[in-house]
Design a binder for these strands. Structure first.
Lengths: 143, 143
DNA sequence: TTAAATTAAGACAAGAAAGTCTGAATAGCA
DNA sequence: TGCTATTCAGACTTTCTTGTCTTAATTTAA
């Protein structure tokens, strides 16, 4: 299966949301993150490094080092994260996989899916990680 | 990446749509199907066999054998095909991958995604393969 | 009854995604 | 300085998906 985003992308969304919960400037170690989220340590490390490379996160080595948002949480949308990890091809591909499907040669659900896809896009663009962070305040995520 | 359905599922949707174009009862060989759709022969064979197993298609061996729909095209929806191949987990999973996300502990986009997902479901249920078959009448798919 | 055309079945291979491990680099601190 | 905690980088492994191949079974028709 495969629900819109790769596992890596889902992890990225969760991790960035968690970081958005911390005061700006505070760094969080991978160890801390894996304790809250249930994401394999080394896999998460790789994902965070990639997000640093994309400019979404900053990092610092050494004791009291870790990762933090590179910009205010309000300014980072879910789409920024998705685009950095999975890219945005899903906004263009035919849902039935027809290579010929396009505005000129639409498949049977081209229009319907196009509308829905646009709404998914709006959802991702309108939601910033300060908002999704609220999720992490729930009891399931507390120490 | 991963746009909602697996490659196998996309191929299944295309193949069933193509079969829906033929008069009821007429059988189509794998060779014929691969000529129109650009799907690897043996992979398509495997997919068709699975659809026979699921009761969506019928098959017959030997010369002039092949595959055909097991029911009237109007009665087979896209959802029947998707469910047979990929299952319907995508109707339940959290789009951000939070294991805890549910009606009781919704994530930030739980509601928004729930609405969109329901619309995707409606799209699949309301579209039968007689309708999607029309797509295949277009010049790109003619001999 | 034999030959040809087809599906059936399942082992195998290649590729991609997910996850693991190790060693190096860096930073803080005693 | 040297110790420790951390990220960085990349090779490696495992698992899943996608695709290929081979052989058997079935059907039709000459």
């Amino acid at each position: 299966m495969s629900i819109l985003f790769s596992r890596e992308c889902e992890y990225a969304l969760q991790a960035v949301s968690y970081l958005a919960l911390k005061p700006a400037g505070e760094l969080t170690s991978i160890k801390d993150l894996t304790k809250k989220l249930r994401i394999p340590y080394h896999f998460l490390a790789k994902i965070l490094q990639r997000l640093v490379g994309k400019g979404l996160l900053i990092s610092q080595k050494g004791p009291s080092g870790g990762f933090g948002l590179a910009a205010p949480a309000e300014s980072i949308t879910l789409f920024h994260v998705v685009d950095a990890v999975d890219g945005s091809d899903f906004l263009h591909r035919c849902v039935m996989g027809f290579p010929e499907c396009s505005g000129k040669h639409p498949c049977a659900v081209h229009g319907t899916w196009g509308d829905l896809r646009e709404k998914v896009y709006q959802m991702l663009v309108n939601q910033n990680v300060a908002q999704t962070a609220q999720e992490m305040r729930k009891p399931e995520y507390r120490d």
